[in-house]
Design a protein around this nucleic acid. Sequence first.
DNA 1: TGTACATCAGTGAACGCGCGTTCACTGATGTAC
DNA 2: TGTACATCAGTGAACGCGCGTTCACTGATGTAC
Lengths: 220, 220
Amino acid sequence: MTRPKVKRPRSRRGEGDKLREEILDATEALLSQTADRRAVSIRAVADAVGVTAPSIYRHFPDKRALLMAACQRHFDDLQQRLEKMASVAEGPIDALRETGHAYLDWGMDNPEEYRIMFMTRPESDAVTDGEEMDYSDTIGPGTAFGALISMIDTGLQAGEIRADRNIFDVAIAVFSLVHGVTSLAISNDPQFFPRTDAHRTLDLLMDWTFAGLAPAGLDS
Amino acid sequence: MTRPKVKRPRSRRGEGDKLREEILDATEALLSQTADRRAVSIRAVADAVGVTAPSIYRHFPDKRALLMAACQRHFDDLQQRLEKMASVAEGPIDALRETGHAYLDWGMDNPEEYRIMFMTRPESDAVTDGEEMDYSDTIGPGTAFGALISMIDTGLQAGEIRADRNIFDVAIAVFSLVHGVTSLAISNDPQFFPRTDAHRTLDLLMDWTFAGLAPAGLDS
DNA sequence: TGTACATCAGTGAACGCGCGTTCACTGATGTAC
DNA sequence: TGTACATCAGTGAACGCGCGTTCACTGATGTAC
């Protein structure tokens, strides 16, 4: 990891932005492979790219900005996956279930990214160590949370979800439910809480939830 | 924080263990006040106690051991609180609801401790940065999770919980539900997800859950 | 077609910092005679 | 009751490390004349 690996050939004039992309790729790869944010240092990233540390500063003002940029990519990836799942589903309840499981899978596949994005302390300092998030990018329209809101809204319109609930409250509750299983799954020894158990737990919670959300006390 | 503060008077012969307790107290206080594990360095702890850094090593072999000891105290504290809530409650369903809210309050009051105990990556490395937990101390009898199991069991005996559920599955589901709200509450700007909202969300989820757990499809 | 030059991508060395930890020590205090 | 001494609680200085970041620089490359 500290060995110089491959010496990257210098980009040609006007192609300096290539390095920017390579740096982001390396940052993601490092985070994903080590599953440990402490392994993602400026030096380690530079090393993985095959470049020296100061080169990073030609493309990002500081470490914070680098991590923010990498995290934004993850957000976009997650959102696209969820929207894809939702578009394929048969009806809003099915969409909620499917996206819930997809979300869980994504978290389990990207545990450290998940921790950074959804499990770090609020405010400024999180960033040195992880990421500070702009909430308007998190819950606004065109985001993962926005997609959740619209699924629930569709359910309401279709009469599959009881209409006496505040839609935002329901969304927060459903989100915290899925987040609970995901966060538990990646904070424990896989032997203690294996992947199939996580999905089973989510299913059980969804059963309860959709019984509670059903208009006439019917199970979904 | 780097200033020497008060110079602690040396303990008398045979009273060396006093410092051990003071070190643990200072560790907890530092963690609680800063809500940032990075602020809890050997030097900072020593400083808070009014002693030099090497003195710590007379009482703890390394930083890991110090943090483990401090965390064990937190576990004991949480467990005692939950058992107290459970003993006061009127019936098992009420006990589950009350302990759920007490758990949420505890997490919100001790966010960094909660993160260390329930939200760090599994395995060895968590400790340098937080804590590795011995699961037999976490889910065995006489623990917080053990208390949850026994509440559900009481509910089953009393006929207030449907008997066709695997008790362990139900316990994991209930735990991950409460954990979800707690973890969400302490990972976001309090302005975005205030304390009352967290309790309201938990209530909603509990409503769904107890509808699902009720024997005859009745609400709790 | 040849050459001088500005530009641009990236380097090498060093900075100051806080960290966990080690080591040889000091000096107060209880105890044995 | 007095004194020598072993013990014990804690100190002061230093170690090596990895970190983010800065600074003056180098040398290849495209462009203007």
